[in-house]
Design a protein around this nucleic acid. Structure first.
Lengths: 162, 162
DNA sequence: ACTGAAAGTCGTTGCAT
DNA sequence: ATGCAACGACTTTCAGT
């Protein structure tokens, strides 16, 4: 159970819903050329089979005093399953950490951290990162500018068939 | 014109809307303890002053055949304003590039790229990255696992006053 | 800045195709 | 998998406090 077959209609629905998650079902229906009922059933199916994981409001960090964004490269000392799982659990629980990926390359993890300012980031490092067990290196790259920041995944690019 | 004052009610509204962008105004109102009308006016104000930038559906990449995520470190040869702006414009236009930040550290930009597979990634590099003018280095770090991936910005953490 | 009510719009279901 | 129709629920506005 992994990939889901999407026809052109599903793809259009997903594209629109990624752009405007709060569009009314009626408007969505007319934009894809379906009756509201048919459209609604498709959306519901996409939610139920896990293609649509949820909906969220998108905020402006700088407007709510969370203007500092840092990309952190983390390296571990040892790579036992237990200590790694533990670090992942802790890192996930920090609200300042918006994203965290285990990656190839010289670091083991890359995090995206959002905080109000340098003072807060200093506190974050001292209280929540440096206290983790088994950390070898922490490399902080500060975001100077946000060129693009979306979670809009391409749909219907690549190999289609229906 | 930058930061916006948020009281406890606004903060709760934003926290809830980040978790469930499609919650009905009525449910939102009762969860924050306001009448639907009052709640609606606050949400509308938050949208109008740019705190809420929009709403979107959150998809599962692996379910729609976009299972490969790559963190790319880009370095430029020269840093003239023109060539940089040009690269930023082009990179922004690529749907495979979900995020792009100008950063401190050894790279100039970090991108998050999402594609179906290695073949697609190879094509992406050859057609869209290597063809950019003035690129010095491209370093691809593949995401092995997604530990956390949200755009949920902390609200009402840090210095409050109302 | 809030509440309450009114009017219009929308989501959701059942039924038939 | 679709469209139509119906009912209840919701959004949005406006007058009053």
């Amino acid at each position: 159970m992994k990939q889901v077959e999407l026809d052109k209609l599903d793809q259009r629905i997903l594209a629109i819903l990624q752009q405007d998650g709060r569009i009314s079902n009626q408007h969505l229906a007319e934009q894809v050329g379906l009756s509201p009922a048919a459209c609604w059933r498709r959306v519901r199916a996409l939610e139920e089979n896990g293609v649509i994981k949820g909906y969220s409001a998108h905020l402006a960090p700088e407007r709510i005093g969370q203007g500092l964004c840092v990309l952190v490269n983390l390296s571990l000392q040892r790579h036992t399953i237990d200590s790694t799982a533990d670090i992942e659990r802790q890192v996930s629980s920090y609200p300042e950490v918006l994203q965290c990926f285990a990656v190839t390359g010289s670091a083991d993890f890359v995090l995206r951290v959002v905080v109000p300012d340098m003072v807060s980031y200093d506190r974050f490092l001292n209280e929540k990162i440096f206290t983790l067990q088994g950390i070898a290196q922490v490399n902080s790259n500060f975001a100077l500018r946000e060129i693009k920041n979306t979670q809009t995944i391409p749909v219907g690019s690549g190999d289609e068939h229906s």
